[in-house]
């Protein structure tokens, strides 16, 4: 680790030597506000539904969500939750699951067979294994999205910024093949920059710009802009990362009120009990 410290120290020297070459790090994520922010924030169910559609029609071509099952979509707080209907029997969830074929073992012969998915099945992975995923994506591995929003600092803003941050690379930046320039991506592009002045912020990302206007048609008539798609899919991913988030916050408000009252009562008792003690 100390050796790493010395390497970093050497980098530090390099910075002093040529500050113009220094990588500036990624751009700070865009400042977006979400319905699920703050202690009273909740998911907008319609938005999470739209977000699921974006994930299903766009992201799921490459990105798995190993921790998600179809039933999760119909559980309390989920995009297709209907009060009084169990997650497994939810008709929307059943209909979604039916569209997928999953592997199973024939109990008679032991052969691998395909069958229709049920609410209890996990979201199928787009690739059989990591090697297959890399082979189809120019060597890059599309990360699993199950907890993506928790796994990045400022998760919702970061993912939204990446999705909407693609643009024409600045003049003088040679973008390597199968890569795209994104100012919100962490990385260092100084080795590829031949232009003048400061090295552009950001890094290269292997993901092709995934969203286009009208790529996904929203069933509720919402206009399908890139910005809208990005916001909606982030809401869906935020829900998937913390499906119990709303329940947690509501529980928290009750717990805080309880503790406040309890603390207040104890304080009054304390004053009463200590009333006659000079201290």
């Amino acid at each position: 680790m100390l050796r790493k410290g010395f390497i970093l120290a050497a980098f530090g020297l390099a910075f002093v030597a040529g500050p113009a070459l220094a990588s500036a790090g990624p751009e700070a994520p865009k400042d977006v506000h979400w319905s699920f922010e703050g202690p009273f924030g909740k998911f907008d169910q319609a938005q999470v539904q739209r977000g699921y559609k974006v994930y299903r029609e766009v992201c799921s071509a490459c990105h798995a969500m190993d921790l998600m099952s179809f039933r999760n979509l119909g559980q309390k707080g989920g995009p297709f939750y209907v009060e009084g209907v169990s997650a497994n029997d939810n008709p929307t969830v059943k209909a979604i699951a039916k569209d997928y074929q999953v592997n199973d073992i024939d109990s008679e012969t032991g052969d691998v067979v395909q069958r229709q998915a049920t609410s209890a099945d996990k979201f199928p992975s787009p690739f059989a294994n990591e090697a297959a995923a890399r082979a189809s994506n120019g060597g890059a591995l599309p990360p699993d999205l199950s907890v993506m929003i928790k796994a990045r600092a400022q998760g919702p803003q970061y993912v939204y910024s990446i999705l909407t941050g693609y643009g024409t690379p600045p003049a003088g930046l040679e973008v390597p093949p199968n890569q795209f320039y994104n100012p919100y991506m962490p990385g260092d592009v100084s080795a590829f920059y031949k232009g003048k002045g400061h090295v552009p912020k950001g890094g290269f990302i292997a993901m092709t710009p995934p969203l286009e206007a009208d790529k996904v048609s929203f069933d509720d008539g919402t206009k399908s802009t890139v910005d809208q798609q990005a916001k909606d899919v982030v809401a869906f991913l935020a829900w998937a990362s913390e499906p119990k988030q709303t329940e947690r916050k509501q529980f928290g408000v009750a717990a805080m009120i309880y503790l406040l009252v309890f603390a207040g009562l104890l304080f009054v008792s304390y004053r009463r009990i200590w009333r006659n003690v000079a201290h």
Partner: peptide
Amino acid sequence: DGFAISVFLLMFAAFVFF
């Protein structure tokens, strides 16, 4: 101590829930 513990738990709960 009970009063102090409940105030401490308020801070604890703020982290856990929010």
